[in-house]
Every structure is written in C-alpha cells, then in structure tokens.
Write a protein that binds this DNA or RNA. Structure first.
Lengths: 81, 81, 81, 81
DNA sequence: CTGCCATTTTACCGGC
DNA sequence: GCCGGTAAAATGGCAG
C-alpha cells in the first residue's frame, strides 16, 4: 500500500471521493426542493408562508417525539420496563 | 492611531478583549447551570429527565411563536394590517 | 388564492408534502455521509481533518490564500506571533 | 421521589425554573457578544477573521501546530499541493 | 446588499 | 479516559 507520510493515501482519497459524491446527490435533492418552491410560487403561493408551515409541522413532530421520549424515560425511572 | 498593515491594531485588540470578557461571563453562567443540575441530582432527580423537560418546554415556546408568526404572515398575505 | 379548504388548500398541501418527502431524502443522504465518516474513523482517520480537507477542496484557491493573508494581517495588528 | 404533584414536583419545578432563568442570562450575554461583533463590523473589521483570531487565542500553541501539521500530511496523502 | 433562516461544524456533557 | 449523542456557534444560502 502506498504510504505518504504514514497515511494510506489511496484509502483516504476513496473516502473523500465517496463523500463528495454523496454531497453532490444532496445538492441535487436541494435543487429539486427549490424547484417545487418555484412551482408553488408560480401558481401564486407565498414562499414565506410555506416555509413557516413547514417549520411549524417540523416543530409539531419534534414535540410529539420529545413527549414520547419523556414518557419512556419516566417509565424507566420508576422501574417499568 | 497606530496602523499595522493598514489595520487599527489598538481598536481591534479592544474589540477582541471585550468579546473575550463576555465569553468568560458566559462560561460562568454555564457553570452555575451545571451546579443547579448537580444539586438536583444530589437530591435524587434524574438529569436526563430534567433535560428532556427543558427541551419540551422550549419546543412548546417555539411552537407558540411560530404559530403566532404564521398567523401574522397569513394576515399580511390577505392584506390585513 | 384566498379560498381555504378548497382547491388551493389541496394544492398547497400537495406542495408541502412533496417538499417534506424531498427533505426526508436529503436526510437519508446526510446519514449515508455520516456513515462514511464513521467508517473512515474506524480505520484510523481523523474526521476533523477530513472535513478541513473537503472544505479546502471546495474553496477556490484564490479565496483560500486571500483569507490566509488577511488573518496574518490581523494577527500582526494585535501583536500575535 | 415517585410522588407526583407533591413536594418533589414542587422542588423539580424550582430547579427547572432556576435553570431557565440562567439560560436566559446566557442568551443575553450571547446577544451582547453579537453586538460587539456588529460594532466591529461597522468600523470595517471582518467578523469571520475576528472569529478565527479568537479561536487561535483559545487554542494552545502546541495543539495549533499539531493540527496544521496533520492537515499537511493529509493533503500530501491525496496529492493536494 | 442586508438580514434572516437552515445547515454544518464545533464543543460539551453524561454514561460506560 | 473515550464515546456517543445533544446543544451551541459558525458558516452558507435565500428572500426581500
């Protein structure tokens, strides 16, 4: 194995490239999201409102999970398995 | 004014030091928080549960503000001032 | 666009859900990235340094040296060596 | 500690509220820091570079050069010059 | 071009 | 003492 300064260069390069490929994928998805926003805007919806709605829905989900989590943790605390 | 490389060194130093002082203050407050947790733990409370509770309360607050915000934004959207 | 619960409402919901689906996809990809980092970590690479590497590869060389130079100037300004 | 709504509940609430108060304080300090940055920005300093400066001052010199060296090694490993 | 919001990175803390 | 996950800080991107 080629060693540069004690590092397996080939292996490192492979990891880096895998990550960069995944980051590209992510960027693609992000662009699709933007397109949906544009489309919505094009038929008259307000992007600001849409974002606010999305945020609110996320918060609701998070709240629900936190609540469930808290319940679990209480149950554990009083010895319920 | 002393100029080093075109930069007002004295002024920069002052800003940096002000920030560092504030960061120290923040660290102090953080330590007080830790002490409260320790104290609670000492009388038998479960830190994990406490954190969960705090998080839940924060989410509730955030949710409420988001909701109000959304309402505002809807009102604006339909021309209510 | 001011009708609520009608066609526009349905359409808005559709947009929102499309976006949420895409956001889930994005989250998946993000997790895959994390897994690659873990794997790299598992064979001994330093994740923090890998991140720096990725950032450097993203930055145009010009910007990179520009930033480095400015930092030197500031350091000189407050007498850091 | 399993009673709910009794002494323990009251005590728990007190701890939670003390922590929330301290967290508010922390947030205040954080805002003051932001203000100093704004002020600095207002007279022409580059905030990003100031942050780097602060970080450098925090890091022990040893750690600093260690990191820099490791980065060089990795760069060499994947053939970045 | 400015301010705001999301994302990403860094630091911290409790558990093991 | 490390490790994993959680919260804070910093960077980047978008809308107005």
């Amino acid at each position: 194995m080629t060693q540069v300064g004690g590092i397996a260069g080939e292996q490192l390069r492979t990891f880096i490239e895998r990550i960069e490929r995944l980051e590209d994928e992510k960027k693609d998805v992000q662009e699709q999201i933007k397109e949906v926003f544009s489309e919505a805007k094009g038929v008259g919806f307000d992007i600001r409102i849409m974002r606010q709605l999305l945020r609110l829905r996320r918060l609701r989900d998070a709240d629900r999970s936190e609540q469930e989590e808290l319940l679990e943790v209480y149950k554990a605390a009083i010895g319920m398995r």
